[in-house]
Amino acid sequence: MTTQAWTLARALRLAFLSAGALIFLAPYVWMLSTAMKPREEIFSSSLTLIPERWAAVENFSKAFTRVPMLQLLMNGVIVCAVILVVQVLVALPCAYALAKLRFPGARLMIAGIMLGLLVPIHATALPIYVALSGAGVLNTYFALAAPFMISVFAIFLFLQFFRAMPDDLINAARLDGMSELAIVLRVIVPNAWPAITAFSIFSVVAHWNDLFWPQIVVTETAMAPPPLGLIFFRAAEAGDDYGALMAATVVVTVPLLAAFLLAQRRFIEGITLTGLKG
């Protein structure tokens, strides 16, 4: 790798990949650029990336003052955390039981989980909404988190991961005096970090960015997670103030990027440290 010659093929490959990366990054670059621009430059006919007059402070202060931005971020953190914690707490023992214990109906349950993977939230949204509405819990964190607390995807992912864990490891734990709960906590979880981290990335990204469900159960800005907050912002405050809107979008995107980079590092550590063989 290090001594590879700068061949034409390599240059072509690099150019091709760079072009691809540019296409995917363009919206983000444009978002950053717009967040820095004053209003009149955004609507000017010339396309420039670097603003002539920097309006970052103006835009970001608008984003933080016109809407309760901190409240939105906090809502997002709470809802994502509740969803993730409950998902993992439910899915770990479920997946362990299905992967490693023998009991009647296990195959049927696995089939049920596979079926569950095929049903989108949009299909069940209406009945769940009616139930939550009937219970009088609309506009709460619970309403935001409830439909996602049991994740068949998490169970499925952990199930696949646990199946690869050697049975003897669990048998050894049983002989060492561990209960099934202790096995999950002391043997399965410490060795399942790569799977848990991978799932956490999926879960947090999906629910941080989710707009569909919050739009159904939340009508108050105080309860809105970030994307819904942006919608409210645009409708009520910003109008055509795209600079401030993009600044707010940047603020909403950054925590996710940071979390992802941190988790990614942990994720790779997890893979290299876990020598599951023999």
Binding site: P166, D168, L169, N171, A172, A173, R174, L175, D176, G177, M178, S179, R186, V187, P190, N191, L273, T274, G275, L276, G278
Partner: peptide, 21 residues
């Protein structure tokens, strides 16, 4: 009896050591 109550120790073919410890 359950394995943990038997006061029996076992050495497995794969050794079955806890990889994280």
């Amino acid at each position: 009896m359950r394995p943990s109550e038997r006061d029996i120790a076992m050495v497995f073919q794969s050794y079955a050591l806890y990889p994280h410890l």
